[in-house]
Nucleic acid binder design. Structure first.
Lengths: 335, 335
DNA sequence: CTGAAAGCGCTAACAA
DNA sequence: TTGTTAGCGCTTTCAG
C-alpha cells in the first residue's frame, strides 16, 4: 500500500495525498477528510525511506555513550530518548567503549546513517582537555551535523556542551572536609577524562587554598569495582587518610566497605563523598553522601538547544553550558 | 557526492560503482581498485535512504524496553546493541514505560520506521500470561516482522522468546528456606507481569510441596524503592516473617535495611534473596544473595535466533527458550 | 485548490 | 566484465 494506491482510491493525485500526509494548508478540508479516511481504512503509513531520500532526513538522532549499562549513562540515555521522542525524533543508540579507534568508527557509522544530530554522553568524548588529536573526529563530525556533548567540554564550531561544574563541586567538598578538620584527603579516581581532570583540579586547588600540601600518594587511580577498591585500600597499610573524595559512587562504596572492614567510624574517622548520586548511594550502609551533577538538567539543556538548532535558531544558543552541581548529604559526611 | 559523481570520476557506470560498494564478484579487481581509490579520496558514503528505499531495509532493529535507566534493562540493552553491531545492525532504542497505550504507540512507530526486527526487553510485553487483549499488538507486529521477547513468554507465530526459569528458581530458593527451618516466608513483589506471576507460582508451589500454608498476608506488593520497602516493613508490626523472597534486588535491599534498622541478624533471624544479581547486591551490607537470570545469555540466544531468521533459516529456531537461573550466594542466605 | 512531472541516490534485471 | 535503464515511494516545483 503506497501513495499511488491511496491516490487512486481517493480519486486524487499523489501530490494531494502527500499534502494531506504533511498537513499542508493548501488542501480543502473536504478532500483532506476524504483522503484521511481512505488512509485509515487501509492502515497506510508513508514509507520513511522514500521520505528520507527526498528530505535527506529521517528525524533520527544518534546517541553515543561508552556503556549504557553504567547507571549514570543509562539515566542520561533514558531521559534523552524520552525528550527526543516528544519532539518526534527517534534515537539510534551506540555504545562505543573507551577506545579511540572504536569511538571514531562509531561516529562515522552514525554519520553514514545521516542522523540529524549527534549526542555524546560522557566526558570521554571531550578528550583529556589537553591535546587535540583525540578529539579531531568530534570536530570533523561537527562539520556535518550539530554535535551535543553531555558532561564534558570541547570548544568548537557546531559543538554544544552541557556539563556540571565538577571543578567547583570538588573544590567545595574538599574545602568542607578541610574546614571540618580533615588533613589527609584521599582522591579516588578511575580515569583521566576531561571530567576526572576537572575534579582533580578542584581537589588540588582546595588543598592549596587552605595551605595543605598536594601529595602524590593521596591521589589514587583504581579500577571502578567495589571490592577491588576495598581490597586495594586494605592492602595499602602504609597509606594514611582521614577522608575520601571519590569521583564516582562505585569508588566511594569501595571506601565504605573498607571502613566497615576496618571498623572505622564513618564519618568521624573517615569522611567519604561520592559522585553521581546513583542508586548505590542509598544502598550502601552507611548511606553515601554524593555529588549530584544533575544529568537530567544537562539532558534538557542539550535537547532544548538541539531543537533550536534544528529549527535554524543557532544564533540564540550558547555553546558552553556549565551548571552547578549539588551535594546530596547522607551519612558519610558531617557537613 | 553521490554515485554519479564517483562513476564519472572513475570513468565507469553507476552500476559498476554500486557493484564495488557491495563488493560484487562480477567486477574486475582492477576497476575495483580504481573505484575504491576515488571513493576514498572523496570520502564517499552511499546514501542509506536511497539504498533503504531500494532494498526496503536499513539494517536497523528496534529495541523496546520500559525503562533503560533500570539496571537490568540497561545491561540487556548494552549487550544487545553490542551483539547487533557485530552483525552490522543499528539499534533504535525506545522506552515505553508500562502503560498499555504507550507501548502500543511505540510499536507502531517502530514498525513505521521499517525496522528489520523488534526486540522487546521485559516481561511487561508478555502480558500477565492470562488475557490476550493486552498482547494483541505484539502479535500484530509479528505479522510484519519477527519479534523477540527477552524475559517473558508469549506464544505466537513469528514471536521468539528467551527467558529465565523464574518459576523454578523461586521454587528452589523457597524450598531451601523451608528446608533450613523457615516457616514464614515473605514474598516481596512490585508487579503483576508474566515474570512476577511465574515467581509467585514458584513460591506457592514450594510452600504447598512442603505442606506449608499459602498466606495472603505474606504476599506483599510494594513499590520498588528501597526506603519505601523498608518503611512499609517497619510499619507492619503485625506481620511476622523469618525470611524474604524478593522478586528484585531493590526490594531485597529494602528488606536488608529493615533488618538493619530492627537489628535483626541476617541470615539467622532473617534470610533474604533478591533477583537479577545487580550492582546493588554487592553494595548493600550484608551483601545480598541474588538469583541471576543471566540476561546476557538471554540476549545472546535472541540475537543468534534473530540472525538465523533474518537469513531465512526460520525452521531451525525454537520459539520458546527457557534457561535455568542460578543463585549467586552471598551473605543473606545460609544455604 | 489540484495535478503533472522532475528529481532524491541507489539496486538489480536485462543487454551487450 | 560492464553499461543502460526501470523502478523504489515520496516531496516539491511549476502549471493550471
Amino acid at each position: 500500500m503506497n501513495i499511488y494506491d491511496i491516490a487512486e482510491l481517493a480519486g486524487v493525485s499523489i501530490a494531494t495525498v502527500s499534502r494531506v500526509v504533511n498537513d499542508s494548508p493548501r488542501v480543502s478540508e473536504k478532500t483532506k477528510q476524504k483522503v484521511r479516511t481512505i488512509m485509515e481504512e487501509h492502515g497506510y503509513t508513508p514509507n520513511v525511506f522514500a521520505r528520507g531520500l527526498g528530505l535527506d532526513s529521517m528525524k533520527t538522532i544518534g546517541i553515543l555513550c561508552p556503556d549504557v549499562s553504567d547507571a549514570y549513562m543509562a539515566t542520561a540515555v533514558a531521559h534523552l530518548e524520552s525528550r527526543m521522542h516528544e519532539h518526534g525524533y527517534d534515537c539510534i543508540l551506540c555504545c562505543s567503549g573507551f577506545e579511540q579507534s572504536v569511538k571514531e568508527k562509531y561516529v562515522s557509522l552514525l554519520l553514514a546513517k545521516r542522523i540529524d544530530a549527534l549526542l555524546m554522553v560522557g566526558s570521554t568524548y571531550a578528550g583529556t582537555g589537553e591535546s587535540d588529536k583525540n578529539t579531531q573526529y568530534v570536530r570533523d563530525a561537527a562539520k556535518q551535523i550539530p554535535v551535543f556533548l553531555i558532561n564534558g567540554f570541547l570548544d568548537g564550531e557546531n559543538i554544544y556542551c552541557a556539563y556540571g561544574d565538577d571543578y567547583q563541586a570538588t573544590y567545595d567538598v574538599t574545602s568542607q572536609m578541610i574546614e571540618t578538620g580533615r588533613k589527609r584527603i584521599l582522591f579516588l579516581c578511575d580515569s583521566h577524562s576531561y571530567s576526572a581532570n576537572q575534579k582533580l583540579a578542584g581537589y588540588e586547588s582546595a588543598l592549596k587554598a587552605h595551605g595543605l600540601p598536594v601529595l602524590g600518594d593521596l591521589k589514587l587511580y583504581v579500577k571502578n569495582r567495589i571490592h577491588t577498591v576495598r581490597d586495594i585500600l586494605l592492602e595499602r597499610r602504609d597509606l594514611r587518610f582521614d577522608s575520601v573524595v571519590a569521583t564516582d559512587d562505585g569508588l566511594a562504596v569501595g571506601a565504605i566497605k573498607y571502613a566497615n572492614a576496618k571498623l572505622l567510624k564513618v564519618p568521624e574517622n573517615l569522611c567519604i563523598t561520592g559522585f553521581n548520586n546513583s542508586a548505590l548511594s542509598i544502598c550502601s550502609d552507611p548511606e553515601l553522601s554524593s555529588i549530584d551533577n544533575r544529568v537530567e538538567e544537562l539532558c534538557n539543556i542539550s535537547v532544548d538547544n538541539m531543537m533550536k538548532i534544528l529549527l535554524g535558531e543557532e544564533t540564540e544558543v550558547n555553546r558552553n553550558n556549565r551548571i552547578p552541581c549539588r551535594l546530596i548529604k547522607r551519612c558519610t559526611t558531617d557537613f
